[in-house]
Design a protein around this nucleic acid. Sequence first.
DNA 1: GTCTATAGAAAGATAGAC
DNA 2: GTCTATCTTTCTATAGAC
Lengths: 192, 192
Amino acid sequence: MPRSAEQKKRSRQRILKSAFKLFTEQGFENTSIDQIMHHAGLTRGAFYAHFASKSDLYQQAILNAAAGSYVVRRKPQHLDNKAWIETLLSSYLSRDHVENREAACPLAFLTTDIATREPEVRNTYTKIYKKLNNLIHQHTQTYSNCSETNLLAVTAMMIGGVAISRALNEQETVDQVLEACKRAAQTLLSET
Amino acid sequence: MPRSAEQKKRSRQRILKSAFKLFTEQGFENTSIDQIMHHAGLTRGAFYAHFASKSDLYQQAILNAAAGSYVVRRKPQHLDNKAWIETLLSSYLSRDHVENREAACPLAFLTTDIATREPEVRNTYTKIYKKLNNLIHQHTQTYSNCSETNLLAVTAMMIGGVAISRALNEQETVDQVLEACKRAAQTLLSET
DNA sequence: GTCTATAGAAAGATAGAC
DNA sequence: GTCTATCTTTCTATAGAC
């Protein structure tokens, strides 16, 4: 790859990352292109060499974030499926996640924002949502014959738990909610 | 109350209702004061006779919506607590709710939007969230000794289920999610 | 590809007439 | 209290130099 193309790819990646961070912290409409570009160490004018529009960027940023988050996380060799699912639940339903200190899940951080956007964005959301369900399904079926129903309930609880926690204004309640979701998820995943 | 005050109250109520509808459909930033006032049958200029700012309106609209929604819904005489909770779950986790055809729950419709707003708004969210938990707690304790943990997990699943459903772009999946949450909620509420 | 400069549109908030 | 008119700011998107 020629140097300039290499450079462009790096810039693009920086923009995507900055964009997702700001979108999750402030929402789509509260985040300006100017802000994103400055955060990425560039200026406004360079934006349109990478993306067609702000809305285009939104989709790309969500996809990019999903590609580096839970939905594609790989199980380490030394853990069995059950232990790994517990790890996944623990880190998903954690304060670190809620407070956006590690790879934020777009499913939980952008839910209602995405619900009000165009169909293409909602398609992207649907795709990622299915990936998360598949990921958990694949790792639970070896040790439990948990139903499809319980699986869907668990992901709704994970996403809901994190989304609510971000909106709440009391740390104590947040901790209770996260803990409750973790326990209930494990119960549901080991039932038939 | 003098006629003019009566009139003002009616206008205010119309504005609150229009605002909440548009906020849930389009999000806070995508909804303009102009739009809200036209929807309420008034013009822009009249807005500031009722509210100090758009942000002020947001809080009032959420409170007003909560006051007319699930969190204060009363059990009809002819139903026992268990039957009523089942009714509540059924209507909360329904397509009618997801598609905003009946009193939308601010907890599910505005979750991530509120997470990015000022502390006062998040305080309002927290208050309403607790009301919903109390409501369910009061009606389940007579027929089940379901734990506080399970209660929190159930409301996370209700809110999460509806929030996700609004973002998804496939009717079939939405129906599955809603049904799954309904069943799992009933299971959790009847466990210790 | 990235920069500065700017066009053009939209929206929050205010002023003053009725 | 509600209206029309307007100030002011902000933002998306484009133009043109390097």
